[in-house]
Write a protein that binds this DNA or RNA. Structure first.
Lengths: 175, 175
DNA sequence: CCGAGATACCTAGACTTCGAGGTATCACGA
DNA sequence: TCGTGATACCTCGAAGTCTAGGTATCTCGG
């Protein structure tokens, strides 16, 4: 998953690890920044496999960096993964859905249920940069290719549906 | 995640491992059955922690089973997790979205792009038992509590949005 | 010039899950 | 009665990620 994302982000441009980390964090609306201890070993692994090359640069802004760029085989690997993403259809680990599946067991305590829904609402309404370009709300048309447009459309629709349901349900439960 | 799901499924009724496996598989439309080598160690761990008890039964259908039931502390643990699901808000690993984010890089080969979308379409349109009770399509009203109703509503809306987008885009790309 | 903060990279141990194997029980048909 | 298939549980090694630490560089304000 992470290695796939790293290859994807490097396809267009060379980046160093810290930038890559910011890209990945921005993708998820800065909600789930990947940990250093996860990212750098993944980079090293890709480098060891010959999929990307590292070039040490003297520090311009701060500490010296390693510019990362895809090798030819890294490029080929990404394209191959895009062509045959069999395993990528499967995993969709949505822990919040797991909470919803069992939240009825707090039935003696509707206030606790409402509190959980309210925290979810707060979480979803904090500005997620996936939906914004700075302060400007994004639209599907802001993306150049139909695939990111679809991604945006699906994510937006899901978010809207959940927000509407959350607000209705919080009201219905007397919150 | 898995341990959470196990506790949730056992809250209402005692089950043995094999049934639990089927419940979890059914939840995901039999698309992602949990592996034995994942499930049984998780059960053992919960048992060691005193959250569930195991009672050996002689084999009625086949091999002898261990009936699993929540202990009082298992019950308390689930309710506590439901009350404070902080970490549960975060992880949402959607590998398919990762594919969509980068699928534009197959731009020299629209047929390969369409093939990927078509496989996704096949995957989404195979009967997922999460949306069906046997052959009968489920509705939100089939669930007793608002939380599973919401889960169903959100999942359905997401699925519908994606299906519409997939069909439109496959057509637009000349597939 | 000195400390704080941002930048940049790294290690180590733990946890969860996966996959590929193994063993044993029972029912049922050929 | 003998195999096959479904049921039921288990072990082990590999892989990916997380958390919690650590080190070093550079800028900038006081």
């Amino acid at each position: 998953m992470l290695q796939f994302a790293i290859l994807g982000f490097l396809y267009d441009e060379a980046l160093h690890g810290y930038d890559l980390r910011k890209r990945i964090a921005a993708l998820t609306g800065h909600i789930r920044p990947i940990a250093d201890g996860t990212l750098y070993p993944a980079i090293r692994k890709l480098a060891d496999a010959g999929l990307l090359s590292r070039e040490l640069q003297p520090g311009q802004v701060a500490a010296p960096r390693q510019m990362l760029s895809l090798t030819e085989s890294g490029r080929a690997d990404l394209l191959a993964r895009l062509r045959e993403p069999d395993e990528l259809f499967v995993t969709d680990e949505n822990r919040w859905f797991c909470v919803l599946a069992f939240l009825r067991y707090l039935d003696g305590d509707p206030e606790a249920q409402v509190a959980v829904l309210r925290r979810r609402l707060d979480f979803l309404t904090q500005p997620a940069s996936f939906f914004y370009d700075g302060d400007r709300p994004l639209r599907a048309a802001d993306f150049d290719d139909p695939f990111r447009q679809g991604l945006f459309t699906i994510a937006t629709a899901t978010s809207r549906t959940e927000l509407r349901w959350l607000r209705e349900t919080i009201t219905a439960l007397g919150g």
